[in-house]
Nucleic acid binder design. Structure first.
Lengths: 127, 127
DNA sequence: CTCCTTTGCAACCTGTAGGTTGCCATCAAT
DNA sequence: ATTGATGGCAACCTACAGGTTGCAAAGGAG
């Protein structure tokens, strides 16, 4: 899987975790194990179709996976791998930030007697 | 800081990272170091107030911090600690999921000859 | 003092995310 | 063969996030 997909999956995971209803769905799957759409809709105070949409997004983010069409019931189960992906992406981001901050501090020390145009461009404003 | 705040900060970080404009702002801060609102607004194709709102959200999430009212200019700088918080929260979530999945699998083995009511409640639907 | 830049606040506009209702296809059970 | 649950699709409604414009206050530079 190319690194670009890692980023997009991490972002999808973040977007998925942002919504409280989706977090409730994940909590429910973690609490009582795999469940189907109507199953979850009965436990949450929202309609079945709303649950289906959210499960679709969660599946697209890789946080859950359909167990396959076993007869008529389509149970979904948690998929911890997606969280790990997002986690490592976050770790890389933090690392990058640390590096940049250190580099900028070094540059600030070096330019203390040579005030170059390191600052932001002070260009003209267009009316 | 109580653990409840950890969760809310992590969620705020996720919400902040979801928006592409906010990611662009963070990238710009990482690339060229601390910058003010108008500074960033000149580089991005959006208005100053939009930038201000986003910076407010980023600051609330703890991802950036105002360097303090130094005269008239209010530069913002990156704050890597918030990312670490979100990262550890994700790690805990993944850990919890793993534990639950293992426990559920064990319970599934134990109930193979004693089919209790471990399944989801098949209660009646109320009109 | 006067001018210019930076910043903050408030009202307003618009697309879309989250939710609903309604209808239809599919499979299991009696 | 009929009934009843389940799942999928589409149209529709509504609140809010992202963005804009406009204006007023607060330093700095001349």
């Amino acid at each position: 899987m190319p690194p670009g997909d890692v980023e997009s999956q991490a972002l999808a995971v973040f977007a998925a975790l942002t919504d409280p209803t989706r977090r409730a769905l994940l909590d429910e799957l973690a609490r009582a194990g795999p469940a189907t759409v109507t199953d979850l809709a009965r436990r949450l105070p929202i309609s079945r179709q709303a649950v289906a949409k959210h499960l679709g997004q969660l599946a697209e983010a890789g946080l859950i996976s359909s167990a396959g069409p076993t007869g008529r019931r389509h149970p979904y189960r948690l998929e911890p791998a997606a969280i790990r992906t997002a986690q490592t992406w976050l770790a890389r981001l933090a690392h990058r930030w640390d590096d940049r901050l250190a580099a900028l501090e070094d540059a600030l020390d070096a330019t203390e007697d040579a005030p170059h145009a390191t600052e932001t461009n002070r260009g003209d404003t267009r009316p």
